[in-house]
Amino acid sequence: MSLDLDALSIRSAHGGALFSPLSLQVPAGHVVTVMGPSGVGKSTLLDAIGGHLAHGFHLTGTVRLNGCDVTGLPAEARRIGLMFQDALLFPHLSIGDNLAFGLPPSLRGRAHRRAAVEAALSQGGLAGLYERDPATLSGGQRARAALMRTLLAEPAALLLDEPFSKLDAGLRGEMRRFTFDHVKSRAVPTLMVTHDPDDAAAAGGPVIALKGLISP
C-alpha cells in the first residue's frame, strides 16, 4: 500500500497557485510530515487529497492510492481516512454508534458488528463506553474514539490535520504514541500536516516543507 502525490498543485479562485507543485510518496506504515507556516494551504492540501476541496479551488496533478488514480473519485469512494485537531464525533450518536458508523457494511450481522466495535473500543482504552454520550468524554478519550472510528473504516491511507494541537501537553505525547503505533501496526500510509516540530519528530518519517507562493 502506498499513497503517491504527483505534481499536485492547487489554484485558488483568484487564480494563484497556493504552493509549488508537490510530489511525494508515502509507503505503507510510514508517516510523512508536511510542515509550513499557517495559511500556506496545508489543510487545503489534505482536502484535495481526501476529495473535500471547496468550490473555487482547482486541482492539477494526481493522487494515487496503491497505484490507482483516485483524483476523480468522490471522497466517500477514496477510502482515505481523515483526523482533525477536534475529534468531531457525531454528537447525536453514542460512542459505540460513532465507531459503528465507520465500520464497512460488508461486515454482516448485528453480533459481529457489535463485537468488532467492542474490540476497537477496548483497543482504544474505551472498553465499556459503548452507550456513552460523546459530549461526556474527556479530550483524550474523544481523540482515541475518533482514531478508532477512522481505523475501523479500514482506510487505505490516512490524513492527519494537526491532530494533536488541541490536546494538553501531557496527553499529547501519549496520543502521538497511540496514533503512530496503530498506523504502523496496520501498515497504513499516513500524511500529517502540522506546525509543531515535536509532531514531526515523533512521527519519525521524512519532513517536507510546504512553501507558499501567494499570500492567502
Partner: peptide
C-alpha cells in the same frame, strides 16, 4: 454545521444520501 464533521463522515465511506440522513438531519433536528 462544522463542514469537517461532514468531511469526516465522507472519509468514513458514507455517500451523499447517508451524510444527509444519518448525520446532518439528526444533528440539525
Amino acid at each position: 454545521l462544522d463542514p469537517r464533521m461532514i468531511h469526516a463522515a465522507a472519509a468514513l465511506g458514507s455517500g451523499r444520501g447517508r451524510r444527509l440522513w444519518a448525520v446532518k438531519l439528526p444533528v440539525l433536528i
